[in-house]
Design a protein around this nucleic acid. Structure first.
Lengths: 159, 159
DNA sequence: TGATTTTAGTTGAAGCTTCAAGTAAGTGAA
DNA sequence: TTCACTTACTTGAAGCTTCAACTAAAATCA
């Protein structure tokens, strides 16, 4: 027997909900961050990933992996963040192909000042709608989907 | 007692998974649709929403709601789809402010030819990773989040 | 060793999205 | 009826993302 061609009721509901969340949630978070500091959700995530890394630096490839972005997209954005004084590019001592992105003190100050408002927004837009069980279910199911999309994805590493 | 400032382990897992899905899933579906018919996931959804509507037409505002898009974004995209012969703009008989988007026969042919491949992609990228219970949980939780983001959202209407 | 392939990253152009401003028609209040 | 306000939509410009092409260094291999 082959797979059914169309989606059943739950499949359709799950898919449409994910599609809607996908456009509405980033838009709402972008609006909050734009108002708070004239940056996008993606900009924020670049800074956040660097701020959590050892020594506040990461090779471009690793930073791209942690933000699920293409190297090209990241390169353009790092150039922009560099102009704003939040990130610097440095050479990698052992491998001359590698560029290391480094969060400056000014960048650290920025993300520390933005983080509380951003976390509040994530809570009020999404987490507050859910019970603790819902959150655990979403984490479990979400990681399954991520694994399907990219079985080496960094968020699965510590699992 | 005030809310905790930071996310706990499950909250962080759920949030990071959603963020990753958010960039990886549309990118993968875009790639499939780009290869199959040189259109984006958003283009596809515009055509799909029109194809499911009575008479294959909808006012721009309603189409914007069903694709979770701004009117501006939709207006630009409809112009593009119009140039490709898939959509037409028509006047609304009762209200001269309203523009009605109408799916042409060529547009209907296009979406009918693309739908099977697109549904297969949605299955293989996401649904195949999940059990039936997971799908039902995701539908339930996803709709809760959508309701939080926009309590009048059209996917909640028939609920 | 030297040639080939792979990895890491950058760049410019094209296309897409957002933003701000603008038009035109309908609604509501005095 | 008139004036102000709201709704529906469009437009052009600015900024962002993707794509293809490119450079340079490291790894592989004959």
């Amino acid at each position: 027997m082959t797979e059914p061609r169309w989606l059943n009721a739950d499949e359709r509901r799950a898919w449409l909900a994910l599609l809607s969340i996908n456009t509405l949630l980033p838009a709402a978070l972008d609006t909050q961050l734009q108002a708070a500091g004239k940056l996008s959700l993606f900009d924020y995530n670049v800074l956040a990933m660097l701020s959590e890394a050892d020594g506040r630096f990461l090779p471009m490839s690793e930073l791209a992996a942690r933000t699920s972005a293409s190297l090209s997209r990241l390169s353009h954005v790092v150039t922009k963040l560099q102009r704003r004084g939040w990130v610097e590019r440095e050479a990698h001592p052992g491998d001359a192909r590698v560029t290391v992105a480094h969060l400056t003190d000014a960048g650290m100050d920025t993300i520390e000042s933005l983080a509380p408002g951003h976390v509040d927004a994530v809570r009020s837009l999404m987490l507050d709608a859910m019970t603790d069980d819902d959150v655990a279910d979403l984490a479990r199911i979400g990681e399954k989907i991520v694994a399907r999309l990219d079985d080496d994805h960094w968020i699965l590493r510590e699992r």
